[in-house]
């Protein structure tokens, strides 16, 4: 589980639409953590940001399934470039 992190880490809310990023960690509480894990958003998985609204939630594609993620939640998902 040791990975060498060369790439810069940022929150999902700052990711550029159309780009693919890798989930590094989830900074939320245990409940949110579990919910995202159950939907398959485990650290190490690759997701694509489809839509990044100015104020609204963002849409991501993960394993060919679209998830809408609220702003507050997106802030807590830490990702990095591939």
């Amino acid at each position: 589980m040791v990975s060498i992190m060369v790439n810069k880490m940022f929150s999902l809310s700052q990711a550029v639409p159309g780009k693919k990023v890798k989930v590094i960690s989830i900074a939320g509480g245990r409940g949110l953590h579990a919910r995202l894990l159950n939907m398959g958003l485990i650290p190490g998985s690759t997701i694509e940001v489809v839509n990044q609204g100015m104020i609204g939630p963002c849409i991501i594609v993960h394993n060919s399934c679209r998830l809408a993620i609220g702003r507050g939640v997106a802030h807590k998902i830490i990702v990095s470039d591939l």
Binding site: L36, M39, I59, A68, I69, G70, V73
Partner: peptide, 9 residues
């Protein structure tokens, strides 16, 4: 509730 929702096709 934190907003995480699957968008069905």
């Amino acid at each position: 509730m934190p907003f995480v929702m699957e968008l069905p096709p």
